[in-house]
């Protein structure tokens, strides 16, 4: 869907007030390409204009021009069946011909965008506007993405989390952190008590791991990705030591927790405590933490 296709017309989609909007920059992990998309709220009206310019001043015939607002979940593995959970369409022009550059406006009023945009390893959740000029031979299609955030209130019951982790007679620690749900710019604060240390530890890390699962059990597949690796302790503690945990989240590329989005996929984040011993062996304990996008950001 290149800008510079050899199509006889050039279609440009413009959102109203695009310049004033926050632009979200995402990256495809595998291709290392960037996507820029203006940010929209969950219920915001998507309004804009379409400019169609014929190339070289030739007239172009068409059998109609349509604009669509689409929310879709796309899978890398299986591109054949995009799952469109939203699709709205407007007719921009009846069949005819375009001689000069023409501008059409469109508006999708208060369109409900129930999910947050996502660009993951194997799955994407996209919102975009598509303009199609129908022709006899091959249609000319032009798409433009927008990005959607879902702001959530702080989930209830976010009490202090404690967990005991240990290898019998070898290692015993108690981890403790302030809550189980964090917003994206939150700080994980906690501490670790070493109640038994018989391993020769070298250091300890915290990791944040994102797990993306696609499909419905049992036919699901999942991929994980370590988003953050953060050393919290250097050297070997002795029994009775306490190590502080403080991890600022805002600097990292985290996404809110997504559970069974349209029954197609989930994205979860796990907090992992990793102990590394002298011989390089890693002992870890993972625990899911909830991440949400707070409107207070």
């Amino acid at each position: 869907m290149s800008f510079f296709s050899q199509a006889p017309v050039e279609i440009e989609i413009k959102f109203d007030g695009e310049e004033a909007r926050q632009i979200i920059d995402t990256k495809d992990k595998d291709k290392n390409t960037h996507h820029l998309a203006p940010l929209y709220g969950a219920d915001e009206t998507v309004k804009g204009s379409v400019i169609i310019r014929p190339r070289d001043g030739r007239k172009v015939e068409h059998t109609g021009i349509k604009v669509q607002f689409i929310g879709a979940i796309e899978f890398k593995e299986d591109k054949s069946q995009p799952n469109e959970f939203i699709s709205w369409a407007r007719e921009l022009a009846a069949p005819g011909e375009v001689r000069h550059a023409e501008t059409y406006t469109f508006e999708f009023k208060n369109v409900e965008k129930q999910f947050e945009s996502y660009n993951g390893l194997s799955v994407k959740l996209r919102y975009f506007v598509r303009v199609t000029m129908f022709r006899r031979m091959n249609d000319i299609v032009r798409e433009k993405d927008l990005w959607v955030y879902q702001y959530k209130p702080e989930p209830e019951g976010t009490a202090m989390v404690r967990m005991d982790v240990g290898i019998e007679d070898c290692m015993h620690i108690e981890c403790e952190y302030s809550k189980s749900n964090f917003h994206l710019k939150d700080v994980i604060i906690g501490r670790i008590y070493f109640t038994l240390v018989r391993l020769k530890l070298k250091h300890m890390e915290l990791s944040l791991i994102r797990k993306e699962s696609v499909g419905v059990p049992p036919n699901n597949t999942s991929q994980t990705e370590t988003v953050v690796r953060f050393e919290i302790m250097d050297g070997a503690p002795v029994k009775g030591e306490t190590i502080p945990i403080r991890l600022f989240l805002s600097g990292f590329d985290l996404v809110p927790t997504m559970r069974d989005v349209n029954k197609k996929f989930s994205v979860r984040t796990y907090l992992s405590f990793v102990l590394v011993d002298d011989a390089g062996r890693r002992y870890f304990k993972q625990r899911e933490i909830g991440i949400y996008r707070s409107s207070e950001e």
Partner: peptide, 13 residues
């Protein structure tokens, strides 16, 4: 003072 606890290695600490 609190954060310095993260270094438990004697020399570096």
């Amino acid at each position: 003072l609190e954060m310095c606890r993260g270094v438990q290695h004697p020399l570096r600490g």
